[in-house]
Simulated scan of single mutants.
Amino acid sequence: MKRVLFIDRDGTLVKEPADEQVDNINKIDFLPGVFTYLGKIAREYDYELVMVTNQDGLGTSSFPRADFQPVHDLIVRSLESEGIKFNEILIDESFPEDGLETRKPGLGLLQPYIYGDYDLTNSVVIGDRLSDVQLAKNLGSKSIFIGDNRDEADYCVSSWNEIYRILGDGLRKVDFKRNTSETNISLSVDLDGSGKSEISTGLHFFDHMLDQIARHGGIDLQLKVDGDLEVDEHHTIEDVGLALGQAIGQALGSKKSIGRYGFYLPMDESSARVALDLGGRPYFKFDCDFEREYVGDMPTEMVGHFFKSLSTELKSNLHITVKGENTHHKVEAAFKGFARSLRMAKEQNNSGVLPSTKGSL
């Protein structure tokens, strides 16, 4: 599903004059950094760009539309000349007193995005007014507010440089849904959490193992699964791995400043060697034999399959080797070892540097 940046125009792309009317060319004054950093966002990140703007006065007798259109076109052409091309430009020309649903924060103009194949939960509204923040809430999206601190917004910034950094670092917290004919999964992951979890998959031992990932990985994880357990455990465990891998990948964003690599761990008589690379090249290797078919209500054959599913969607290189005698301990060592490796690999060092000589991950 596609993510979208819904971007306001006046006050966000161009400075808003005192009379709140960008009605001639002399009033066009772009925000500092917008060409540099919105250009980098357009080139480097996987968001569609959509301009959504309320334009009071377009088409009025005092300011005919003909006066405004060349100004708007010049703004758009200037941005396009720097590689910033909007997938769509949505302009509402009504006045506040008209009370139309097309006017922000109403959703009238955004119906194709609400009912289309878009990931609105992890999309972002960028603007300089509380109506933009409310639009994000109405869409169920994140909000970035340009201006003085607003507690209502998810992020408050003073520059496009900060917006680029926030999107590049990854929002670090994402909500994710994966619904099929076999499972309905809803999860939230916060990479900078404290290890709290609320997990319900219908498989108690699997819940316990996922709690190990949250607690020892230093992430907050909320997960609810409605799966076809009457058929088999396979679909639930596999699909959780797929969903968790996708969600963590989204939260990591461009992977700038992350540690990238991780390793670990002993568990009583068992030991797990886990090597993790968040380098974007999926490869999985699992070396562990289990003496028991089940631990609790979780089939041991699904342990490796869970990690393979997660690794594939996370686009990570993951090697897990576990030795020991107690099957419970070996399974738990694998989950804890992965968690500690993930904790090391996801941590940021504030360098702003991508941990790769290739220039991309």
Rank of each mutant, 00 (worst) to 15 (best):
E20P: 00
Q21D: 00
V22Y: 00
D23Q: 10
D23P: 03
D23R: 13
I25A: 15
I25G: 04
N26D: 12
I28Y: 07
I28G: 10
I28R: 07
I28H: 12
D29N: 13
P32Y: 05
P32L: 07
G33Y: 07
G33K: 09
G33S: 11
V34F: 05
F35C: 06
F35D: 10
L38A: 04
K40Q: 15
I41D: 08
I41C: 06
A42E: 04
R43A: 15
E44D: 15
E44T: 04
E44I: 02
E44C: 02
Y45W: 07
Y45A: 14
Y45K: 15
D46S: 15
D46M: 12
E48P: 01
L49I: 04
V50C: 13
M51E: 11
V52P: 10
V52Y: 08
T53S: 15
N54D: 09
Q55Y: 13
G57R: 01
L58A: 08
G59V: 11
S62K: 14
S62A: 11
P64C: 08
R65I: 09
R65N: 05
D67C: 07
F68W: 04
F68S: 02
P70Y: 09
P70V: 10
V71S: 05
D73C: 03
I75Q: 04
S78T: 03
S78V: 00
F86K: 08
F86R: 09
F86I: 09
N87R: 11
N87A: 10
E88A: 14
I89Q: 08
L90M: 13
I91K: 00
I91E: 04
S94N: 12
F95D: 10
E97W: 12
E97V: 13
D98M: 07
D98P: 00
G99D: 07
G99A: 06
G99P: 06
R103A: 01
K104R: 14
G106F: 07
G106C: 08
G106Y: 04
G106N: 06
L107W: 02
L107M: 02
L107C: 01
G108Q: 02
L109G: 02
L110Q: 01
P112M: 00
P112E: 01
Y113D: 06
I114C: 07
I114H: 04
I114D: 08
Y115A: 15
Y115N: 12
D117Q: 11
Y118M: 06
T121Y: 11
N122L: 09
N122T: 12
S123E: 11
V125P: 06
G127L: 01
D128N: 14
L130S: 03
S131G: 11
Q134M: 08
L135P: 08
A136D: 01
N138F: 00
L139G: 00
G140L: 04
G140R: 02
K142H: 14
K142C: 06
S143E: 12
I144Y: 07
F145K: 02
F145S: 01
D148I: 12
D148R: 13
